[in-house]
Amino acid sequence: MSSIQTTHSTQSLIQLEQLCKSYSLQDVHGQTITTQVLYHINLAIHQGEFVAIMGHSGSGKSTLMNILGCLDTPTSGSYWLSGKNVAALSSNELAQIRNRNIGFVFQGFNLLKRMTALDNVATPLLYAGISRSRSRKQALEFLRHTGLEDFAMHQPNQLSGGQQQRVAISRALINHPSLILADEPTGNLDSQTSNDIMQLFEKLNRDQGITIVLVTHEDDIAAYAKRLIHLKDGHVTIDKNNTGVTALHETF
């Protein structure tokens, strides 16, 4: 058993084995209805990859994303993250992983309302136990990198969608995570802004070697990724490299 564990840690950042997820609901008659969303997923994602998970709504891609982000737990099977069995971790350890190792970018940005962009970016640092003043200083640095320095004291509702998503990306990056999980990050943005955001992801992946896992149903967004995984009704149907499309994009 221990030999398997060491193999995991050396091989891949994310390793899913026979991962299943089902939801149980009570219908109006009080009877339990079980809906299976993910069926026996086997998947390995290595450090530094840029992966797009594609599929129609209901394909289970968001559920998979939540499990990858340690926001949800699988019904069966195992999930190894950096060689650690996620199922064996306490809620505190999971919170720490979400804080230090994973950065989230959501479709709806999910910034904290009535809080400045600066404080939004600084919050993960606060949860990491860093003082408010140091957190803010560091957050300002990150906002400067994404070109939002002038908007540091703006609240989310005073920012455009693209700006909000940049703030969210700054927040995701602030603890130097090894993994960015982006759930339809361009879903609420126009195509120009979408491309800007995707180029930002591409740059982070290329320059800093950050692993990026992206959920999308748009082909032109998925085109930025180096690897495409298609989900259909809870099964992985396609898992291929994306070299051709990337080449196409580079001529763009």
């Binding site: 926001l71 919170a95 720490q96 999910n110 910034l111 309302k113 993960p124 949860y127 990491a128």
Partner: peptide, 14 residues
């Protein structure tokens, strides 16, 4: 808001 805080690293105690 609680969900967002949890996603960015708040533990139950926080």
């Amino acid at each position: 808001e609680i969900g967002i805080r949890m996603a960015i690293g708040a533990n139950q105690r926080a």
